[in-house]
Amino acid sequence: MTIPTKLRRMFWASGFFAVCLVLVSICFPSSLVGQNCGIPGYTGSEQICAPANGGLGIVLASDSGDRRRSRQQKGEEGHSGNAFSVLGKCSSCHLEDPVLPEGHVATVEMPLAHCRTCHTPKRPMSLAGKMPLDHKHALVGFGCVACHSEEAPFEEPEMEVCLTCHGTLAQLAARTDPSLHANPHGSPHGAPYAECTLCHWQHEESEDYCATCHDFDFALP
């Protein structure tokens, strides 16, 4: 039976995550109470919550993100769709180019949460720096309009857009690996040196801006 792409996208974008959230809430009942999203093996604290209106999919707790994200999760056409035609299907864009190591498990229809069962953040197998951040966002269901406007010009979003999900700078600094001898989110050079886009780029390889002067060598996502 062939399922039309759009329907499949709707399925993954809505039903799959609803199921995941249900499963997660059964397996990790306390995990949805706090900031953690409750994804096994994931230690971040993005606010991923079930929508209050009873709809399906992932939306943000904040008002500013709700409208865009929930529409995106319904798989609407145009730029509101996910970056992947099928979640985790690399060949959607990369065609025949090998982008995964030989012998890698099949990734088609795999959300980031499942990637992280092996690729644990902050561990040697971490995905930090191994694929563009827009891919990671897409793998948790956040496509173009999660950050950009629906129509051109698609400008670089304000930092507030990032912080909506990722927390304040103070929260980020507190979450940063304490074993590092310098905190990239708490630079002595002040808030201008904690602008997200100084280091973290979505559509090309991120750059450790601190490394233009220091030897810190952060493994940044």
Partner: peptide, 9 residues
């Protein structure tokens, strides 16, 4: 990962 520096390098 060794990032590509755009600085003095």
């Amino acid at each position: 990962m060794k990032s590509k520096y755009m600085g003095r390098k």
